[in-house]
Computed example of a mutant assay.
Amino acid sequence: MVALIVAALIWIGLHVGIAGTRARAAWAARLGEGGFRATFSVASALTITLLVLAWRSAPTSPLWAVPRPLGWVLVVAMLLAFILFAGSLLARNPTAVGQGSALSAEPRGMLRITRHPMLWSFAIWAAVHIIGNGDAASLVFFGAFLLTAALGMPSLDAKVAARDPAGWAAFSASTSVLPFGALTAGRNRVAWREMALPVLVGLLAWAAMLHLHPRIFGVSPLPY
Score class of each variant (00 low, 15 high):
178 L>M: 15
130 I>A: 00
126 A>C: 12
100 G>T: 15
202 G>H: 03
1 M>A: 11
167 G>I: 02
4 L>V: 11
176 S>K: 05
162 A>G: 13
72 W>I: 08
182 A>P: 08
87 G>M: 02
180 F>I: 09
158 A>V: 09
180 F>D: 12
50 L>T: 01
64 W>F: 08
182 A>V: 00
198 P>T: 04
10 I>P: 01
201 V>R: 06
45 A>K: 06
193 R>C: 03
64 W>G: 02
37 R>S: 11
128 V>S: 00
5 I>W: 06
109 G>R: 01
182 A>F: 00
13 G>C: 11
161 A>C: 08
118 M>A: 14
93 N>P: 02
47 T>N: 04
21 T>S: 12
147 L>M: 14
74 L>T: 04
219 V>N: 09
3 A>I: 09
151 L>P: 03
178 L>G: 08
41 S>Y: 12
67 P>A: 14
25 A>L: 12
201 V>Q: 05
129 H>M: 07
127 A>Q: 03
153 M>S: 08
189 R>H: 13
194 E>N: 05
48 I>V: 15
168 W>N: 05
141 F>G: 09
205 A>W: 02
75 V>R: 04
81 A>C: 08
86 A>H: 03
123 A>H: 01
50 L>M: 12
19 A>T: 10
74 L>M: 10
76 V>I: 15
168 W>R: 05
95 T>Y: 12
69 P>Q: 13
85 F>L: 14
192 W>N: 03
215 R>P: 04
153 M>G: 07
5 I>R: 07
65 A>F: 09
66 V>D: 01
93 N>T: 11
92 R>A: 10
70 L>I: 11
203 L>K: 03
12 I>L: 13
137 A>R: 00
5 I>S: 06
77 A>W: 11
5 I>V: 15
153 M>R: 04
159 K>Q: 14
189 R>Y: 09
104 S>H: 09
202 G>T: 02
23 A>F: 14
64 W>S: 05
122 F>Y: 09
172 S>I: 01
205 A>E: 00
119 L>G: 00
218 G>D: 14
194 E>Q: 06
76 V>H: 01
120 W>T: 04
11 W>D: 02
42 V>C: 01
203 L>N: 03
8 A>E: 02
46 L>P: 04
118 M>N: 05
99 Q>T: 14
140 V>N: 00
204 L>G: 12
131 I>R: 00
210 L>M: 15
184 T>W: 14
80 L>R: 02
107 P>R: 03
12 I>M: 13
48 I>F: 09
70 L>S: 09
69 P>T: 05
7 A>G: 02
158 A>G: 08
136 A>D: 06
134 G>H: 02
100 G>P: 08
219 V>E: 15
43 A>K: 10
114 T>D: 11
211 H>P: 05
106 E>I: 15
190 V>P: 04
49 T>C: 10
151 L>M: 14
208 A>P: 00
131 I>P: 02
206 W>P: 10
16 V>C: 13
152 G>E: 05
43 A>C: 08
157 D>R: 10
16 V>Q: 07
146 L>K: 01
1 M>I: 13
113 I>L: 14
143 G>F: 01
128 V>E: 00
41 S>I: 10
38 A>N: 09
18 I>W: 12
129 H>S: 07
102 A>T: 12
100 G>Y: 04
72 W>A: 06
87 G>R: 00
210 L>P: 06
166 A>N: 11
122 F>C: 10
159 K>Y: 06
5 I>M: 10
204 L>F: 13
82 F>I: 05
70 L>W: 05
18 I>L: 10
